[in-house]
């Protein structure tokens, strides 16, 4: 029986295949590689859509611009010029409607006049507000009031490190201060608890920090998004903490 091919047995053939691949796709790889951080955020956005779909919600893209889905890549820009997903679920005869947005500013839960922009937010339907008094100029600022925020996700395309994990608790404190003192807030229907999604794998220290923070607060810290982590949004979704 012929031996299976491997980079150890067939190195020159392996290198030739890689070189042919690189030459064939060089232009596309170069073009798409400029948008890697957006692609990562979009991947996590898609995980969240799948999570809600698996939880029995109907999910529908909304606010298409000339028939195209327009993804908001940064906090800049007026929200009504971008698309989002609407999620709906009927619980005990009542239909609940929420929206999943990307890069939308949320009011602090401590002070009404300061805001921060998590990567992905789930908000009460039709709750985006606009003001022209936030900046020094008359530029429009889009935001959501603290009470209309259901949950949020921060996504990071790095390997986890301690400061990154603790910074997330700062955002949690600012946006959902009740989570700092109350372990499980009951809500109907349930949402995914505030989550930090990181592409890299944890090591011993960062795994321990994750364990401690998750036992202290009602949050999810998910590592290794493209390998083990992705299953948390699908077949292991039951293991994720909820609000």
């Amino acid at each position: 029986m012929a031996k299976k091919k491997s980079p150890f047995r067939n190195l020159s053939e392996f290198e030739k295949e890689i070189t042919d691949f690189a030459n064939k796709h060089r232009l596309e790889v170069a073009e798409h590689s400029k948008r890697i951080s957006d692609f990562f955020e979009i991947s996590c956005f898609n995980y969240l859509i799948r999570y809600y779909k698996n939880k029995g919600y109907t999910v529908t893209p909304q606010n298409l611009i000339s028939g195209k889905y327009r993804y908001k890549c940064s906090p800049a820009g007026i929200q009504k010029n971008f698309s989002f997903f609407e999620i709906k679920k009927k619980v005990r005869g009542i239909e609940h409607i929420f929206e999943i947005h990307h890069n939308l500013a949320i009011q602090s839960s401590h002070d009404e006049d300061i805001y921060t922009t998590p990567d992905i937010v789930i908000i009460q339907s039709d709750s985006v507000k606009y003001t022209t008094s936030y900046y020094n100029t008359k530029k429009t600022f889009s935001f959501v009031e603290s009470n209309d925020l259901k949950t949020f996700c921060e996504v990071k395309n790095f390997a986890p490190f301690p400061e990154l994990l603790f910074n997330f608790i700062g955002i949690l404190n600012e946006l959902k201060k009740e989570y700092m003192i109350k372990q499980n807030k009951s809500d109907s229907p349930v949402h995914i608890a505030p989550s930090l999604v990181i592409s890299g794998k944890g090591n011993k220290p960062t795994n321990l920090i994750r364990e401690r923070l998750q036992s202290r607060y009602n949050i999810n810290i998910i590592y290794d998004t493209f390998f083990e982590g992705r299953f948390y949004f699908t077949r292991q979704a039951g293991e994720l903490r909820k609000t």
Binding site: I36, F40, I42, S43, C44, N46, F226
Partner: peptide, 9 residues
């Protein structure tokens, strides 16, 4: 991995 994630969306 990021290309695939984007394609999935």
């Amino acid at each position: 991995t990021n290309f695939e994630g984007f394609l999935s969306f």
